[in-house]
Design a protein around this nucleic acid. Sequence first.
RNA 1: GCCGAAGUGGUGAAAUUGGUAGACACGCGGGUCUCAAAAACCCGUGAGCGAAAGCUCAUGUCGGUUCAAGUCCGACCUUCGGCACCA
Length: 876
Amino acid sequence: MRLINCVTVYILILFNFMSYLHQQIEKKWQKIWEKNRSHKTRDAFKKKKFYCLDMFPYPSGEGLHVGHMRGYSYSDAIARKKKMEGYNVLHPMGWDAFGLPAENFALKHKVHPAESAKKNIDNIKKQLQSAGYMYDWDREINSSSPEYYKWTQWLFLELYKKGLAYRKEAPINFCPSCKASLADEEVVEGKCERCGTLTTKKNLKQWFFKITKYADQLIDDLENLDWPEKVKIMQRNWIGRSYGTEFFMQVLHGEKGAMKPEKIDKFTCQWIGIDLNEELVKIKVWTTRVDTVFGMTYVVLAPEHPLIPYLTTEKYKEDVEKYIEKTRNVSEVERMSQEKEKTGVFTGSYAINPLNGIKVPIWIADYVLLEYGTGAIMAVPAHDERDFAFAEKYGLEIIEVIKSEDGKSSIENGAFKEDGILIGSGEFDQLSSEVAREKITQWLENQGFGYGIKKYKLRDWLISRQRYWGTPIPIIYCNQCGEIPAPEESLPITLPENIQNFNPTLDGKSPLANINEFVETKCPHCGGYAERETDTISQWVCSSWYFTRYVDPKNSKEIFNKKKINHWLPVDLYIGGVEHAILHLLYARFFTKVMLDLKLIEFSEPFIHLFNQGMVYYKGKKMSKSKGNVVNPDEFFEKYGADSMRIYSLFMGPAEQDVEWNDQGVIGVYRFLQKVWKIVEKYQSTTNLPIDNAKTMEQLKQSKELERLIQQTIKKVSEDIDNFKFNTVISTLMILLNEMEKQPHKLQASDDMMSESRLERRDTSYKLFLKLLAPIAPHICEELWHQLHPEISEKESIFDQPWPKYDPDLIIEEKFELVIQINGKMRCKIEVEKNISEIEAKELILKNEKIKKWIPDEKQIKKIIFVPGRLINIVL
RNA sequence: GCCGAAGUGGUGAAAUUGGUAGACACGCGGGUCUCAAAAACCCGUGAGCGAAAGCUCAUGUCGGUUCAAGUCCGACCUUCGGCACCA
């Protein structure tokens, strides 16, 4: 009795000693990996490469939440599997540290943004390290460090030299709360993307990048990318290419032609089509429906159209001025929210339709936008619903010029918008819309009135910000020499660090404008007094090229080494949230195309394969600390370990789908890992037991089945990881583990039913299992791997092991359950040989008692359908 | 308004791409161990009827194609994303 007690105590101690202590194991291996520099990537140009990239985070004070972890866990698992498959893997991480969020955080907490950024980076880095991701920290980059932004400035100058960076005065989106200008892409529903404040329009002289020059390439090259279709569509829509016709119309100011305007700047002239050399001014309109041109009954100009003062007659001057004043004060959102009620005012002038010489009134209305097309439209109320609504309200003429092919169209209930057959269109009558568009455009071209042209919704990218925390724009203004780029050797133009007040100013200037030591400089040309540009560069520019810097992050001589960049890029797999579908991904593609044109690189697209992981919700909402619904991974790391967290974040649901975090869910995978631990421990303790003792036929059969299951698991896990189906990867491994638990005996060479050659091709089930699990649970697998291989040193990692290959011969089942259906309903199943023939199957089932019960009379059988390897269906 | 995605147990979800609906988990119920609890382990778990074998119903709704539909086709409903007076 006492002896038994002693043994029990001993076993208990032993058992406790061997239990799964995730905290110890994870810390242990994180240290060993770091010590051995296991995650360092070396340039091995002959080896096949894999560049696996996460969207770099901005160092928020909130730290990481489990939503971030989800994406990182996917990429880490893939990177690890690729490593085991023999690829040289580049898997770096860095910080998108410049920009408004970081600056706003710093302002709120009254610290210097550089300080808070550093603190936040340290914290997040610690979190990433305790998750055990295999980032090569030697390649860490920080977009706010001078070593980095030197090259942001350098790229700016390269764009400047190419004429792709320019300054102009324009009405730009302005956030009154952030006190900064915003790019179109940063305005969502008329609100600031970051803080949600309603934006206003403000006229400022600003820097732009000529992204419109690449509009066609940016659309066309989407074709060959392995990206989610959704993102491609969003980009296509954002660029918004449409094909149409532009033509000029003569203007009658009262009875005479209108005089040409005196001062309109070059940009605007180009935009709206004013030729200052001509005596009389013309209006340029653009349309995608030139087939409806005979239905034009008026012309509309945008309220900001510069020709308005020259067109408005004395009689209407007051009305027009009032209307323009009114529209100016209406914010974007109000303009949209007014139920699209159309308003407008007549100018008193007329335009002449070049097709039929008919004069039509020129109106002003805010449903026409200056920034799109030419800021002026031909209005065809019969065939455009907006024009229809406007014409009805102001009693303008409606002339029908398109009939549907069946002649049934009617404009009584509104505009007929579809294509059809032309009527009342002179020589173009009876043509289809499609043909008419071509013919009419041709006619306009021949007469010198117009031409066919593409237009885009995309506008040039506004990159200046009136804020402190960003890359200074490397431009100098000299009274004598004008706008001068900073000389390359003067880079980086450093951001002054010792500054008291980095609050944005109200007058639309950057806080840098108040720092004389920064502003005042010498003109690189004449040596005289000059001033620096005080706006900084939007952080979206920093992140438009960061993926190239990882290949050569410490190079101080050039932006990156040519050989390295062309070896490693493009990125093979890019993982991040859909929220960057337009902004970041479009900008990064633009920069890549520019860098190609600058001959810096030899590829035209940055990211071959893009994957957007779904968002993690908590209590039905997006995670946000301010709303108090953040799941902080740190406590879960402590309680369940990084491996459990990683597995659960992959197990929650399909990778591309949004999921809801459930605190209970992680328990399931924690139990799974405990079971893994226990089984391997148990396996080890039975190592010395002679297998032959227990060798019965039943066990042999079982071990053969287990062997088959292992092979099937290798296949399924390998394929599912490649297809991002991690949720089923995990369930497959759970199934295998449950089976292994039932059959704790080992598959060994002494199992004489296995041929020698087959044994050579496989490892024991436990080792195979660990390899399959390793990419998603690296710490526990590394630990158990070493326990199973006491002979190897800590330097040899399970991740240096080759990824398991399955044996196709071993997968095939010899028997299967044949499903017997009657009229398509499953009635019973019988176990049969894998390759049972149709005739054999029929014979077999008709003899079956259960089936006989369902078929009282064999003559009733209409037909029998046999699906080999699956089922047989009897149709009565 | 236009474009896109999705609707399956109490919950997260699987489903060989037209062939056994609900794998794998969470939760819940019952049990073992314990003085007790926790943990762990075992059994059960779509709904309805039945003592049981078993049967019927069930993948947002209504139709259709098919021997066979969660999967394909048509119409509709709901939810979530994106764009939004883009001529």
